[in-house]
Design a protein around this nucleic acid. Structure first.
Lengths: 185, 185
DNA sequence: CCGTTATGGAACAACAGTGTTCCACTCGGC
DNA sequence: GCCGAGTGGAACACTGTTGTTCCATAACGG
């Protein structure tokens, strides 16, 4: 795909970012709302994303990119697997709204890209197996369960900040504390 | 409220039950879909619940009732608090779709009834505090965090059965195993 | 068995969201 | 400054959902 002009790239980003923030709060928000939140006209949104599904696909790809990048940063292959998962948890926590969105908008993850076998996912599952082998992760907990558990804890942590007003770092601490104990052998 | 005729009570139940099952899968399902799922005409749905919000309110009340009943059955005041929470987890797990619905349809819980201070909720939080005092629950984990954690684990367990095809009892076992370790001091 | 009670279906108006077109505008970069 | 890329807004048709009304008919109960 040809490189977009600076202006267009910036507008596209504004729309996608606004959409993520908005849809995280209300997955049924209208395109008009997205346009307003992005500070652009509804027409412009349609210019970039002809159909709603196109916008959703773009969001999906965007979040996927961020997840992959976060996974890279966690350096899953370094040190004990249990510690690696904690690092990953910290990185994922930073994804914020993107996290919430993925969690309660399954239609997004069932998209073309997420063949349930994204590189990040495979790397994650592999790390859990490594943890099982080296004894740093409870062998009773199946790989998929650990994956779902991590996502659920992250979602809970964000939810916790929203409902109780707990500062983010405290929520993250609780999240990591809980994860550490849960996966310990 | 005057007792409803047997027929009406039965129809009302069919509609509410169908709505819970359907909305758990897709919170945006139309009233027509609900009617079909319940095996009644759309007109009939409107006869019982003039507006969509009326149906939602009825569902909310219904789920709330079931939560209260499940909480009763768990006998939270008996034995160690940690064990009590495990029993509660088992009872809540049986709520099935109602669980999913509450989890990702916050608009329901923000309804009139759920003043964030339902009897079941208060009893739950009180039990956690008891656990803190008697030392059976990790004092680092704030009451609200434990509550959110339990709900998240339950949701995860159900999600796990759906995506991996794991039998329900296995998912519940994983859920309880994880909870036990997470809240242990 | 007969009347009340409950239901299903069709038809309707109203509404919100979507997707499209067109035109006037403004902003950025050469 | 100028030109074209990029934008905003108005207007439109279209769709699906909602909520309403009316009537024929099925089911239930005494």
């Amino acid at each position: 795909m040809a490189a977009e002009s600076g202006t267009r790239a910036r507008t596209r980003r504004a729309i996608v970012d606004a959409a993520v923030a908005l849809l995280a709060g209300d997955p049924t928000a209208s395109l008009g709302d997205v346009a307003t939140a992005a500070g652009v006209g509804r027409t412009t949104v349609h210019r970039y994303f002809p159909e709603r599904s196109d916008l959703l696909a773009a969001i999906s790809a965007d979040v996927l990119d961020k997840v992959e990048a976060a996974t890279e940063r966690a350096r899953l292959d370094d040190g004990p697997a249990a510690k690696a998962l904690e690092r990953l948890c910290q990185e994922y926590f930073e994804l914020g709204d993107g996290l919430t969105l993925m969690f309660d908008t399954p239609q997004l993850t069932n998209w073309s890209d997420w063949d349930e076998e994204t590189p990040a996912d495979l790397h994650f599952l592999h790390t859990v197996r490594r943890g099982h082998a080296e004894g740093s992760i409870d062998a009773e907990l199946h790989e998929e369960w650990v994956r779902n558990l991590v996502w659920a804890l992250l979602y809970t942590a964000w939810e916790h900040t929203r409902t109780t007003g707990t500062p983010k770092h405290s929520a993250l601490t609780l999240c990591l504390h809980t994860l550490r104990k849960a996966i310990a052998p």
